[in-house]
Design a protein around this nucleic acid. Structure first.
Lengths: 229, 229
DNA sequence: TGTTTTTTTAAACACTTGTTGAAAACAGGT
DNA sequence: ACCTGTTTTCAACAAGTGTTTAAAAAAACA
């Protein structure tokens, strides 16, 4: 009776791995739509069609399962974003890339993944959105997983806007983060408000507008007349 | 054994009203910080220092209590916002008010209430923020309580930006809504990211920047070069 | 093959959940 | 004082919670 080991020296696929995947997928989808407290481990195992005890066997506690879900795709997102950032930096060299290009590098990877075949990404981003606006345990997880890369984007933005007060840069990112978060939540509110003219799920309509909106916001907060102090 | 009546023909204050207030306040604070599923009615009644059964006696089910919390201050916000909107419309007449003035009318009432003596407002807005980005039952409540007034702001914005494609106006509001939502959540993420340079709780720093950021975003999405569907 | 390790099962644990019932305490009016 | 309607208490309900246990089954390895 030993706790499950990290079953992989790379390439070795054990029996339990399929089970772990089923649990992770079910948990991802359920947590994304109903939140951590809104989901029971029995709902998860029912959806994954496995026994209740397997969650504790493979992942430990419910919270550890939640963290596993969060962690699974975080590395991929971070790598995607860094690649995109280096891409636009290389293209613009020897000049610094534009604000719009940097924001594009930050958002485009998400856009790509959401449009991909793996529909789990949509659930994943909805989950991240929920964690991002969570008050208690949320901030800590977000900080741990994503902030290191975010910091690199802040550096690039500061170079693109050398005269911008850093605090205005942080606030600008904060607003972008909020817009992003709400968009991924796909609440359907804009559908209702606009009487169907806009749709939460239409990321192709969303992305170009979000990039432009936020780029303009960044620039407005970096003009001399912007709020100081 | 009769369900509690709405105890007020106006001005008449019954015994149970004090209890209802204590429950509402406790529920507001707890729901705001931990979400609907993250709070138990026993936690609420413990914080309110009343018996568990009183929640069901005065409000019915847990969800009905939640709705009562949400509803309590919604009317006030809506009235504040409408007053502010009419104010800026009157000032600008016979011209249409500027985008920045309209956004100010939308946000300033929240700013005022948060800064007021009644600290419950802060909890309330944190709660609304959470509901706003909630996936299931959230959209419905937000739509019911706030969208009628939001629609009036959309009309004013369309008049301020007569050449703007309506869908871009809706998306712009969506982004503003996201920035607003995340700001009220006061997650502390920006504190951490900026190494203390910015603080989630510093609404005096937040508001002017949010108004400017969003106004610039609206205008950018309404220029001829903006994304057209 | 037999032996060891990993995975799955089924049952139970102690505890909490939202909600209710019946009796008790309180209030105001006559 | 009495009666009346409102509010509060206390105990209980059935169902569900996260987690653990020990044994059975499956897989991996010799």
């Amino acid at each position: 009776m030993v706790k499950a080991q990290q079953s992989g020296r790379s390439g070795g696929s054990r029996k339990g791995d399929a089970t772990k995947l089923k649990i992770l997928d079910a948990a991802e989808s359920l947590f994304a739509h109903k939140g951590f407290d809104g989901v029971t481990v029995r709902q998860i195992t029912r959806e994954a069609e496995v026994d209740v005890a397997l969650v504790n066997y493979h992942f430990g506690t419910k919270r550890e399962l939640f963290d596993s879900v969060l962690m699974r795709r975080a590395e991929v997102v971070n790598q995607d974003r860094l690649d995109a950032l280096h891409g636009v930096s290389r293209e613009a060299a020897p000049d610094a890339p534009t604000v719009e290009a940097i924001i594009h590098a930050f958002l485009e990877p998400l856009h790509q993944r959401v449009a991909s075949a793996d529909s789990g990404w949509k659930d994943y981003f909805a989950l991240v959105a929920q964690v991002n606006s969570s008050h208690d345990w949320g901030g800590e997880a977000m900080t741990r997983y994503f902030d290191p890369v975010v910091r690199q984007f802040m550096v690039a933005l500061q170079q693109a806007l050398p005269d911008c007060p850093p605090e205005n840069l942080y606030w600008s990112y904060h607003f972008l983060s909020g817009a992003l978060t709400l968009s991924f939540a796909e609440t359907g509110r804009i559908d209702n408000l606009s009487a169907g003219m806009c749709q939460s799920t239409d990321h192709d309509a969303l992305y170009p507008r979000m990039v432009r909106y936020c780029a303009a916001g960044f620039q407005a907060l970096c003009e001399p007349a912007a709020p100081q102090n």
